[in-house]
């Protein structure tokens, strides 16, 4: 299972690119896509999902050019878009049956499978109510259920944890880890904590380009020995931000506790163990 994205660009007008000369190779496991808003994550995912076509470049899945044969990937794709809707007059069961029909899935097992999915996502009690009456989190779970209908080999989740409560997030992470045993899972988010515990590989994007790709240790190594913590006065914050990359601030009795990234720490700072969020902020700020 290999998905190769080669020199892909999406040009909107003369000067505006959604993606620019983007290349990445994705294999079985979980790829976490990190990047600020407008980095091009959703553009990339829509291209892989065959919703959008690149202006240049190719996307190849197992030696098949999916830009020429979109149905090759569609048959094995589970896609949860960032912002999706539902038919409000259908109930969850009917909606999933409809999506299954769209995907070309049927047969005697379908109803049982839908039941298993609804039950596993804690939607069975509400399965006979119209989806229009569902909360945001419930709709999101229906969205997750539909990705699994066709036993996908490539699963794309674009900001999947929006609307999920903490318990559901944990269950969702377990599900993704389970899925990644046999599939390519691409998980896009700008919330680092959604990715850092489960992603095998992390790609950081900004302005339509790939800043860095590697496993978590490789990325964290970029900021190794560069993360510090100190306490400053509130008035000094602006000046401090001009000279260092501030990761987080917290109010304390003594002043503001600052976690920051710098190659020249100020006196009195204590060195801290770097994490993925530090690496992500470092990469997106220096580029």
């Amino acid at each position: 299972m290999k998905l190769e994205i080669k020199n892909v660009s999406k040009k909107y007008n003369r000067n505006k690119y959604g993606l620019k000369d983007f290349s990445i190779t994705i294999e079985k496991g979980i790829l976490g896509l990190l990047g600020p808003n407008g980095a091009g994550k959703s553009t990339l995912l829509k291209m892989i999902a065959t919703i959008s076509k690149p202006t240049d470049g190719t996307i190849i899945l197992n030696r098949n050019n999916i830009l020429k044969d979109a149905n090759y990937i569609r048959k094995q794709l589970g896609f949860l878009p960032q912002d999706f809707g539902v038919y409000p007059n259908l109930n969850a069961f009917e909606f999933l049956e409809y999506i299954a029909a769209l995907k070309g899935i049927g047969g005697p097992n379908l109803k049982t499978k839908i039941q298993q999915l609804l039950e596993g996502l804690n939607l069975l009690d509400a399965a006979n109510k119209p989806i229009g009456s569902y909360s945001g989190g419930m709709k999101q779970r229906v969205g997750i259920a539909q990705t699994l209908l066709n036993d996908p080999k490539i699963v794309i989740f674009d900001e999947p944890t929006v609307g999920l409560d903490p318990e559901e997030r944990v269950r969702f992470r377990n599900l993704i880890s389970d899925l990644a045993q046999d599939c390519i899972v691409i998980l896009s988010s700008h919330i680092v904590s959604d990715i850092d515990t489960i992603a095998d590989q992390v790609a950081v994007m900004k302005n339509g380009g790939l800043l860095s790709q590697g496993n978590q240790e490789q990325l964290i190594k970029l900021v190794d020995q560069k993360v510090f913590e100190t306490i400053i006065n509130k008035e000094e914050l602006k000046n401090f931000k001009d000279n260092h990359i501030v990761v987080s601030t917290a109010r304390k009795v003594q002043g503001l506790s600052i976690r920051y990234i710098s190659e020249n720490p100020i006196t009195g700072s204590t060195s801290k163990k770097a994490n993925l969020e530090d690496a992500y902020l470092y990469l997106t700020k220096i580029n």
Partner: peptide, 20 residues
């Protein structure tokens, strides 16, 4: 549709899909 109290999706137990 009757509840069996499955709290999580266990992928290996999911019924396989048929093409139609």
């Amino acid at each position: 549709l009757q509840k069996e109290n499955n709290q999580e999706i266990i992928l290996s137990e999911l019924k396989k899909s048929n093409t139609d």
